[in-house]
Design a protein around this nucleic acid. Structure first.
Length: 480
RNA sequence: GCCCCCAUCGUCUAGCGGCCCAGGACGCCGCCCUUUCAAGGCGGUAACGGGGAUUCGAAUUCCCCUGGGGGCACCA
């Protein structure tokens, strides 16, 4: 087999979503596994839907995911000359022809065919116009598009790497437009021309493009190509309600997951498991392990639902695997977003305590937030207030704790409150949440004694006294 | 409407004729550990869509049905 050359070819009509990212990843894994070349091609022939910001955004997101490409990205918008040359050839050989229908006429045609039980499409009325007829239509000022002439009979078949042989009767495929009235090329044409020019050996993409393969291959042959790339159509990724993932619904943009505190390693790992699995059944795999294990023949053909819960679990796995240095680097932006002046040492200490208790960077940042708010700002959340109010003998407890912390040694052993709680005849499991609420603002969080050491004696006491004032004397009264 | 693809626990999947009264993972439930919460350990819950056919034997092969998804554009 010749050296592998694959490409990821997004249309820049939005940011990179998880479906596109999975396609990019599989191409990248395939290339890296075989020591091949991974390319990016921006399919921006539809200028009305393209925005430059989307192009840079997509490339930036690919970089964030660690999917590096080997040559400068190809822009279809700059390859007009190549497409024109190809069209001239197709026109000259009769593989394509000019058509002159208005949008209204086409709409009518689609309707009529639908009524006749045919798929909407083109009836081929401009196929055999004479040069004179074409001139006349052009003189009327009608729009001119170029259509590819599909066979009237016979079957198109190609062997898909994940689905096996796929066939369709040409009779069901009508002549389709390859050049718009404004002269710009359409997907089928650009795709065929570019894959040929770029020497693409394997086309790995979503199943939504399965049907278009016959048409692209037909153009390619009409262009004189004597070989064809191997195709692998990946199963689609569906939303939990089984609908197709789209930008309209839910968090499907990769950048959104990044902003919500997910690690690139976790996203890559999770995406790799959607439609593929390694032979040994491992699930937590790093980039190198994925590259080593990846094979197209283990891609399964059925659609998969994107399960954010499992992604979150994997993210937790990867958070725990990070070194403390890496974790601090990753979480710092999330902390500084709300507390720009957060002390680096405290961030580091908080990250160390929270590393195995959080599944996302956002969660980790929230857990340590109590370290960066002033004692005045700290307000127990709703659940914290409830726990405070519902804890038996809470005033007595707080008094004892305050009393202890005022005089104890400020060391790990000194601030251990378990003896204090037990001396009151209370169970730590029952009453600790109230203390967490008082010091950290929520009834659960980073280990309390370590947290108090980080805050220091004065700040800890200030928070406990504020909580004591909040509960009043109610808790101090025996209930019976 | 027409064409194409797909079909194992709620979800991601293993399985490529006997090793499967179906294995792993997430989730969920229970127990243990425990300063809260997590993490961790142990145990449990839960699936081959239906019907034919082939075969000594079918989750695995074939056919039909059903269901799901995709495509049919001057989007990609």
């Amino acid at each position: 087999m010749s050296a592998v050359r694959v490409r990821f070819s997004p249309a820049p009509s939005g940011s990179l979503h998880v479906g596109g990212a999975r396609t990019a990843l599989f191409n990248w894994l395939f290339a890296r596994h075989h020591g091949g070349v991974f390319l990016v091609r921006i399919e921006d022939t539809d200028t009305s839907r393209t925005r430059e910001a989307w192009v840079t955004g997509i490339l930036e997101t690919l970089r964030w995911l660690g999917l590096d490409w080997d040559e400068d990205p190809v822009r279809q918008s700059r390859r007009g000359a190549a497409y024109r040359e190809a069209v001239d050839h197709l026109l000259a050989t009769g593989a394509a022809y000019e058509a002159f229908e208005t949008p209204e006429e086409l709409e009518e045609m689609h309707e009529a065919r639908r009524r006749a039980g045919l798929p909407p499409g083109y009836d081929g009325r401009a196929r055999d116009l004479t040069p004179a007829q074409r001139e006349a239509l052009r003189a009327e000022g009608r729009p001119v598009t170029i259509r590819f002439r599909t066979p009237d009979e016979g079957t198109s078949t190609f062997v898909d790497l994940v689905r096996g042989p796929v066939s369709v009767d040409w009779a069901t495929v009508s002549d389709f437009v390859i050049v718009r009235a404004d002269g710009t090329p359409l997907f089928f044409l650009a795709n065929a021309v570019d894959d040929l020019a770029m020497g693409i050996t394997h086309v790995i993409r979503g199943e939504d493009l399965l049907d278009s393969t016959h048409r692209v291959l037909a153009i390619r042959r009409a262009l004189g190509a004597d070989d064809e790339p191997r195709y692998a159509h990946l199963p689609l990724i569906l939303r939990p309600d089984r609908a197709k993932l789209s930008k309209r619904h839910g968090a499907v943009a990769v950048e959104e997951y990044r902003d919500r505190g997910y690690l690139a390693a976790a996203l890559v790992n999770y995406l790799a498991l959607l439609g593929w699995s390694p032979p040994d059944g491992r699930e937590v795999l790093d980039r190198d392990e994925l590259v080593a294990a990846f094979e197209l023949d283990r891609v399964n053909p059925s659609a998969a639902i994107f399960d954010e819960t499992k992604l979150t679990w994997l993210n937790g796995e990867w958070m725990r695997r990070l070194s403390l240095d890496e974790l601090v680097t990753q979480v710092r932006p999330f902390v500084e977003d709300r507390h720009p002046d957060a002390e680096p040492d405290l961030v580091r200490a908080g990250a160390a305590l929270g590393q195995e208790r959080s599944a996302t960077l956002v969660e980790l940042a929230e857990q340590m937030e109590f370290l960066f708010v002033t004692d005045d700002e700290l307000e127990p959340d709703d659940e914290g207030c409830r726990r405070l109010a519902a804890t038996e003998r809470v005033a007595e407890l707080l008094d004892a704790v305050i009393d202890h912390l005022e005089r104890c040694e400020w060391t790990p052993d000194g601030v251990d409150l378990r003896p204090v709680v037990r001396a009151l005849g209370l169970l730590p499991r029952k009453v600790m949440p109230a203390l967490y609420a008082a010091v950290e603002g929520r009834p659960r969080g980073l280990p309390l004694f370590e947290a108090m050491l980080l805050l220091g004696r004065e700040r800890t006491l200030a928070r406990l006294r504020a909580a004591r004032a909040r509960v009043g004397d109610v808790g101090a009264q025996p209930l019976h």
